[in-house]
Amino acid sequence: MSNLCWRANILSRSLPNCDRQLSLIVRRRITTKSAVTQSPISLSSRPRCQSPGAKSRLAWRDWFSSSQIRAIHYSPVTRHGGIERPASGTGIKVHFKDSKGSLIKTVEASEGDDLLAIAHEYDIDLEGACEGSVACSTCHVILTPEYYDQLPEPDDDENDMLDMAFGLTDTSRLGCQVKLTKDLDGITATLPSATRNMFVDGKKPTKH
């Protein structure tokens, strides 16, 4: 029995499934209390499904709205872990596949949701280290050409990050930048293969 458990865990995502209601409640509480309220007790006992960092993000929003410094990709961040799952059969279908092309899960989401948020909502193992601020390449996904071509071109910031993505293809995008439209119904997002550090350990740095 434990064998089955392991495999399920390895295949799917680390964090337990989120109870959206709970996460919304947590978020509301943080909003009203503003930034810095978490006691050490709530640190250890807080629900795992709370979108990590909601607190700091809110602090950031206050901060940025009061000061016009420079455009930081911000808006997608607020939604992560908190997107609305559409009623079954009414949403836009998204297929997530692993690097070998096997289907992980087919899920449904709403117009405007991005692939990173959708992956997090449905516990797909897609990382979002910078939480959708286009400052890393961890949510790199590979699309099929017919869907890739329907998307607006990636902007410079996204391209800068894609430059660093591992296993880049001609139809690669950052998941956080792919927002669903009705036309994208049936889109397939394939996760790139991970590296094995077997091949990079001990390699000498290239001499300049």
């Binding site: 434990s2 064998n3 392991w6 495999r7 990382e127 280290a129 890393c136 390449s137 961890t138 660093m164 993505a165 591992f166 991970a194 590296t195 094995r196 550090n197 077997m198 990079v200 350990d201 390699k203 740095p205």
Partner: peptide
């Protein structure tokens, strides 16, 4: 383990592979 190169994403992938190596030595089904 790898020397000072790569961005956070590569550090993360490397760390996950290292974690898999640790777990491969410990988990009975691996």
């Amino acid at each position: 383990a790898t020397g000072a190169k790569g961005v956070l994403a590569s550090t993360m992938m490397n760390a996950y592979a290292a974690a898999d190596t640790v777990l491969g030595d410990v988990l009975p089904d691996r």
